[in-house]
Simulated assay, not measured.
Amino acid sequence: MTLQWTAVALFLYGEIAVNLILCLPFISAKRWRLVFSWRIWNWLSPYWNKCFFTMIMVLIVLFLDAVREVQKYSGPEPMQDAKVNPNVYDHVHMKLFRAQRNLYISGFSLFLWLIMRRVVTLLNQVAVTLESSAGLQVQMDSAIKAARQHQEDNRMLKQALLDDEKSMSAKNQQLKLEVEKLAAQLKAAEEAMRKSHAEVEAMKRQAKGLAQEYDRLLREHHQLQNLQGPEDKKDQ
């Protein structure tokens, strides 16, 4: 294996190890976000995209070179030469095997390189989503608490209004009873006043009758005195 393909194979093994570590279930997305927020990643972030696309270009070139080698050693011409000479046959198969191996190495390296970037992006998105959902959960809990508090305040206010209404109803009932009592007393006073007026009118009529009787008796007395006066004069 040449130096370049040895480097690609080591790169593939490193990708497999990193992807396995990223997929460990006991390491949460929040912890990975803490790891990704280290200062070294912030320092490397300006170069990350350039490095990523450079590696993609290198792996694509190596993959296309491996495809060319596979097509080269799997074509009809090398096989015809290999049938003539057995040593050439073994050599061609060895070259074909190496080309296919390089094809798999470069292809899987390219695939895992894309997968690793996608996994890192998804872990960051999951961590952000979890943080947002935690914030939304806190806001929802506070909103539910506030709603319950408002509901309790409304219940207490309704209870206070109901108590005030009951007390007002009791006061109105008491005032109504007092008004009825005063109305009865007023009616009794009016009845007593009517009786008093009737008695006064009766006394007035009685006094008027007595006055008339007195005047009549007084006139009769004068008449009697007048009748006795001439008789006394005649006897003299």
Rank of each mutant, 00 (worst) to 15 (best):
E77Y: 03
W41E: 07
G14Q: 14
K181H: 14
Y73A: 00
C23F: 03
D235P: 09
L114N: 10
V138Q: 14
Q225W: 04
A207Q: 11
D163N: 07
Y214F: 01
M79S: 07
H222T: 00
W48E: 15
V18F: 07
K176T: 03
A146M: 11
I21R: 15
Q212T: 06
G75I: 01
L34N: 09
N102D: 15
K30S: 02
H222K: 04
Q225L: 08
V70S: 06
N124E: 10
K181A: 03
S133A: 08
T129P: 06
M203I: 02
L110Q: 10
A66G: 08
D232L: 01
L110E: 12
Q4D: 10
Q173R: 12
A202W: 09
Q174Y: 07
R205Y: 08
A189L: 13
G135W: 13
Q174C: 00
L162K: 09
M94K: 13
F53D: 13
L3I: 03
N87P: 06
E199Q: 09
V58F: 02
V138N: 12
L161Y: 08
L110I: 03
W38K: 06
G14R: 09
A66I: 02
N154Y: 05
E165Y: 01
D164Q: 13
L122V: 02
S28K: 15
K171E: 02
Q80E: 11
V200S: 05
L157C: 08
N42P: 05
R101E: 12
N226Y: 11
Q159T: 07
Q236L: 09
G107D: 06
V88F: 14
L130S: 06
Q225F: 12
W48F: 12
V61Q: 14
R39H: 06
Q159L: 08
E213T: 00
S142Y: 04
M156A: 09
R219H: 10
E178P: 03
A189F: 09
R219T: 04
A189K: 14
N19V: 03
N124Y: 07
H221N: 06
G107I: 00
D163G: 01
T54F: 08
T129N: 11
P76Y: 01
I21E: 15
A160S: 12
D215H: 05
I56V: 04
L161D: 09
Q159F: 01
L22D: 10
L210Y: 11
K204S: 04
A183I: 04
N85C: 10
V120F: 07
I60A: 08
F53T: 14
W41N: 11
Y73S: 02
N42S: 10
C23Y: 03
E201S: 05
E199P: 05
M156W: 01
V61N: 13
